[in-house]
Computed example of a mutant assay.
Amino acid sequence: MEGQPDVEPRNQDQMDRKREPAEDEWKSWQRGQVRNTLHLVSAAAQWILLLACLIYLGIDSLQPSTPRSDKVPWTHIRYTGKSIEGVAMNLTAEVGSIQIRNGSIMITCDGLYLVSLKGVSIIPDLEKEDSLKLTLWKTDNKTSRALWEQTVQDSGNAVYLTTVLYLFAQDNITLWTSSNAIIADLSFSLALLSPFICSL
């Protein structure tokens, strides 16, 4: 009878030891299940987002597109004539949707513009000065600054410019010469590449 109480604590210890690994295993299994559930929810959310993007792109591509010339402001100018020192060149549009007023190109949309300028023959009045500067000016409500400038030193020099400029709505673009000159076959194009804000 005296030996029986010793057996019970031993059996209890053994059962506790067996129970601890089983509980650890159970907790580990539960953590794994939670992790698997989170991975599954994350994967499902990603697939739903991907499907939504594909549907959006599909709907966008099915919409009828308007002709590019209707929605993209652009202009093409050809100029042959005399320039006067201190006066903006009297540019007029040959084709395009951007308005030109008093020789100024009127910008109506914020965005990146492709600008191309080519002058085949510019003959400065060399009696007055050794060279002539051709300058592209940007004027807004408050400031006026040069966007580009090229010096023409010899009679009959050609001028080339191809660049991308960020212009704002309400900007005016003008072309000036530093002295009187005869300009032949000046070609000037300006087209909006990426619109941000338009006040059409």
Rank of each mutant, 00 (worst) to 15 (best):
119 G>A: 14
19 R>K: 12
109 C>G: 01
65 S>D: 09
88 A>Y: 00
56 Y>N: 04
60 D>H: 04
27 K>T: 07
62 L>R: 07
43 A>R: 13
200 L>T: 11
42 S>F: 10
180 N>D: 15
198 C>T: 08
32 G>S: 09
96 G>D: 07
138 K>R: 15
48 I>M: 13
122 I>K: 01
21 P>T: 11
16 D>E: 12
152 V>L: 12
178 S>L: 03
76 H>C: 02
153 Q>Y: 05
199 S>G: 00
122 I>E: 03
172 N>T: 15
24 D>I: 01
178 S>K: 04
36 N>A: 15
128 K>D: 09
37 T>M: 12
104 S>N: 11
48 I>K: 09
135 T>M: 14
49 L>F: 12
30 Q>N: 09
60 D>T: 09
90 N>D: 14
149 E>Q: 15
114 L>I: 05
198 C>W: 06
30 Q>L: 12
7 V>A: 11
59 I>Q: 03
102 N>L: 05
64 P>W: 03
161 L>H: 05
187 S>E: 15
102 N>T: 05
127 E>V: 09
162 T>H: 08
81 G>A: 08
64 P>R: 07
164 V>E: 14
159 V>N: 06
45 A>I: 10
142 K>A: 11
83 S>I: 07
175 L>F: 04
124 P>H: 00
97 S>D: 02
53 C>F: 08
64 P>N: 08
99 Q>V: 04
89 M>D: 01
155 S>Y: 00
147 L>G: 04
71 K>P: 00
49 L>D: 08
39 H>K: 13
156 G>R: 08
93 A>E: 04
33 Q>N: 07
119 G>H: 04
179 S>K: 02
194 S>Y: 06
102 N>Q: 13
190 L>I: 15
57 L>S: 07
171 D>N: 15
122 I>M: 13
24 D>N: 13
133 K>G: 04
46 Q>S: 15
77 I>S: 03
194 S>V: 09
157 N>H: 09
131 S>F: 11
10 R>W: 08
27 K>V: 11
63 Q>D: 06
102 N>V: 02
144 S>N: 12
64 P>Y: 02
66 T>A: 14
60 D>M: 11
108 T>Y: 01
27 K>H: 03
4 Q>F: 12
7 V>W: 04
32 G>R: 08
184 A>P: 00
185 D>H: 11
129 E>Q: 10
97 S>C: 01
127 E>P: 00
5 P>D: 08
